[in-house]
Design a binder for these strands. Sequence first.
DNA 1: GAGTGGTCTAGACCACTGC
DNA 2: CAGTGGTCTAGACCACTCG
Lengths: 246, 246
Amino acid sequence: MNATANPAAPTFSPLYRQIKALILQGLATGEWRSGEAIPSEGELAVRFGVSQGTVRKAIDEMAAENLVVRRQGKGTFVASHDDPRAFFRFLRLVPLGGGIEKSSSVPLECWRAKAGPEAARMLGLNVSDPIIIVRRLLSFSGKPVVADEIYLSGEIFGALTIEMLRDYEGSLYSLFESTFGVRMIRAEERIRAVPAERSSSELLGVAEGSPLLSVERVSYSYGDTPVEWRRGLYSTAEHCYINNLG
Amino acid sequence: MNATANPAAPTFSPLYRQIKALILQGLATGEWRSGEAIPSEGELAVRFGVSQGTVRKAIDEMAAENLVVRRQGKGTFVASHDDPRAFFRFLRLVPLGGGIEKSSSVPLECWRAKAGPEAARMLGLNVSDPIIIVRRLLSFSGKPVVADEIYLSGEIFGALTIEMLRDYEGSLYSLFESTFGVRMIRAEERIRAVPAERSSSELLGVAEGSPLLSVERVSYSYGDTPVEWRRGLYSTAEHCYINNLG
DNA sequence: GAGTGGTCTAGACCACTGC
DNA sequence: CAGTGGTCTAGACCACTCG
């Protein structure tokens, strides 16, 4: 037993974590794509030379981290941002009165630039590496609510154009996933209250100086690689940001 | 096998969830108190007439929900708000520059009242049931950062006084837990940006009308019972609210 | 060393899906 | 029906803690 186990691991990790790392590698290298099924637990057990229970525990962890979705009787599938259940995972904004609204995203600009010190630090790049900056406006029920400025590595997202953003049906992360093979796994947000400046007040249709939520986000892909840095200004006149403390 | 299983459960649930419910019951009724060890997996397996693996899976879920903490070689312990690791679980405020600051809480007022319609709805009470209202100021490194107004069921927290709040060392939730036997399990927060009113601007030392974070929270104890409703106004001049999207 | 949680295995059976 | 994940068991051994 312990077939493919690392013979001289510098830092000990249990077998099921090693199996998890191997499966993760398959996800990162694109061996299985978003929405596709990965091999069954039995197959993976044979491939890695461990018991099914060990594979099961590895997949359990990955399911808990939303990397993968299990469906009884069908198989285990690579998590996808196309899945409607994943929509509110990265946009925790709901109307104050409750209910559900139709959202629409309108790209305003998309241009090439060189990374300044801050963007470089956030994205793990060197200063003056190529980056892409996107500005867009997000509306609920036709009313503008969020103004985003999004910084992306030019290396990865080189082919991105404003037409692609305009024409794509679905969320931004769905586009990144299907077109660039980059899946956002987790993100860190830093939230503050700031006064609306001239430009954002016009975009969002609020008075200059009125309070807005400033939401800065760094998103990570496999291996904790930062791939997106963004700043959003949220109008909370009729919406609020919700968060569950567990 | 299936010893203590419910003979005619209306809604099916696997054995390990029934075991989980039984252990949860022990927590809710105070059979084991905060910080104490619950019986070992083997003991619980014998008590409930199931295999240790089944008890294990039940406890796994409870550990994932932060209800319980496992410590190898020692046992499984009832989660406690005294645990320093639990501090930032319910107060996600960090200095903008990073680092750690000393926080101190100063109670301003603590009085009895009757529940209005909003407080009643949030706390699951009837209108004009007795409630307790606490106002307090939270400071980091001596500077005021958060002004809280806290609504509690008078039924449960009847004995609470401002002296208790003033004299207690530790977080508010530690006091609730040790003095009233009420443990906060999870909470929902709704966040908006609002202009500072006269009273809060004076408390927090900011200009009237400047942007503040409004954080409304409902906290739940066992069985999803709401036990606390609060509204906090956060000055984000030198701090920000952090959130991890997983 | 005794007692605890942590890992791993092997095998049985159940519940769900789709052909 | 075959194939998938979901549950449950029994037992072995490891890793950690404490007296």
